[in-house]
Design a protein around this nucleic acid. Sequence first.
DNA 1: GCCTATGTTGCCGG
DNA 2: TCCGGCAACATAGG
Length: 264
Amino acid sequence: MPELAEVEVVRRNLVRWWLDSSATDVRILDERVLSDTTPSAIEAALRQDVKELSRRGKYLFAHLADDTVIVFHFRMTGKLVLAGVPEPKYARLSWLVDKSGWIVFKDQRCLGEVRLLGKEEFKEYEPLQKMGPEPEDITVEDLNSTCSKRRMLKSALLDQSVVAGVGNIAISELFWRVKLAPKVRCGELSDEDWESLVQEMPLYFDEVIEKSMGDEIFYQNEAGMENIFRVYGHAGESCPRCGGEIEKMKVAGRVSYYCGSCQG
DNA sequence: GCCTATGTTGCCGG
DNA sequence: TCCGGCAACATAGG
Ligand SMILES: [Zn+2]
């Protein structure tokens, strides 16, 4: 569940479930999700009031009353959901907020992480220092200075120091919107391509956020979820723009979906 | 058993 | 040095 859009949806849900509140009960179910911290430190942190919930790229931050910060990263399968019980399937860490219910960090593959940072540590947190601009802030000039001509565009955009929050699904969807071939190199884009890319990135993420929010109160995104994407996961089907066949190909280590007729 | 998976990091060879 | 490819992490589902 973890690209910029999904993390932002979680953040907005947490504003409703958790902001200005604290945990009255904490269950640490699998210590492997804790990075550089201890169960007792996390429990003490969760029992404080949350003053702000922020996001940067694919990272989510809960800012606490004493200015320490809980950092969440969901990797491939992590997510935060609201549940009526503390131990639904794949639950690794759960805390009870009286006004909402159990907030549960679920993570099937257990690659995600929860970390605690002091005020100063947060300011110097290396992944934040290195992270590129958010899609809504990035400019063509930014990309021209960070993307070398020889590099494949997919590889550059997946690099979180170039732009924050882009993942493998967004790649297929953005390349389709801008009509770029999956293996295009940065030096092969026209000025118009770069302008279009910079324009489409925030539009794409806003659209996914909107579609993922719905008006459900609870964040449930499991089986039965329809495919909201235009080309990702649609191999063998028709391109919504030109009717050509959607194909897939491994690029930069991951599968890209694309229309063989109208891209590139 | 096979293959796949919305992420990241580190190693290898060109 | 930069780049692409790939294994690794850990786990389950098809
Ligand atoms: Zn097409």
